[in-house]
Amino acid sequence: MSAIFSILIFPGILFISVAALFAEFLDRRIYARLQNRFGPPWFQPFADFVKLLGKEEVVPKDANAVMFKAMPIFAFASSVCAFLYMPLYRQNSLFPFNGDVIVVLYLLTVPTLAFFIGGWYSTSLYSRIGSVRSLMQLFSYEVPLFIGILSAAVLADTWSLSQLTVFYGEHNWFWLFNLIGFAVCLIALLAKLEKVPFDIPEAETEIVAGSFTEYSGRHFAMLRLTLDVELVVGSSFLAAVFLPFGYSFGPIIGFAIFLLKVLFIIFLLSVARTVVARLRIDQMVNFCWRFLVPLAFIQLLLNLIIKGVIVR
């Protein structure tokens, strides 16, 4: 019974959906305020979502209808799943096991793959270009993201998110060693969320909406929600790995601190996408492999040395 409660209500589908839509509002509001605009009212993402649910759904004639319709659900399910492994208000998550860091990373990869497949099967040319671009982008940012997060785990000598937070809880200031990794992962997260400067797969002025061009109605709502959920999950994942403090004050304050950390990361992401232009796909690949990957390796090396010298 409690398992069903956690899956469906807290911190499962219902909670994460509301949180995700609220995160979208925050992102848009901050973005607007940074641009000296007013921004949308708080219920705008909810209204958009409800409106999309009621819209007619069009499946392209040549599209593979099963794949086309299955992919949004697939993407949504996997991103919600990933949230179940987040340490929200205590150091343990709901279902902790050794290796959940890796599982979360892969669960976060699934939506991108789903976008690719869904876009590919919708047979629109814009979608296909967008799909190929998102896959190309995936290969570029995934490596620095993985190395960045794993190097934090290497320092803690564990593959479990709960163990990781426990370790950093014991060694109070160790998270400061991971700042390079944090920066790398923030940038990689921007790429994962397909936000400026990495919104190449859905570059509006080039290929309309990329993989999502042909989607409409419920399934498009689902895709939008998936991206929002990814925003929350990604931010909380980074918060859990790189800002692992503040769990010792009990569940309620711990939860509040956790929320603050997530908000902080969302704020950083919003600022980052305000001050840059969209890159080209070749520039993006270059940037990731030339700067992000070496930086991530430096972080890994640093952590290995620290581990050898200090922790032992």
Binding site: N36, D199, T205, A277, R278
Partner: peptide
Amino acid sequence: AGHEIGFDTLLMYTWR
């Protein structure tokens, strides 16, 4: 031009 290269902040500022 800012909008076409995905730099919406420039768009908002110049139009303001």
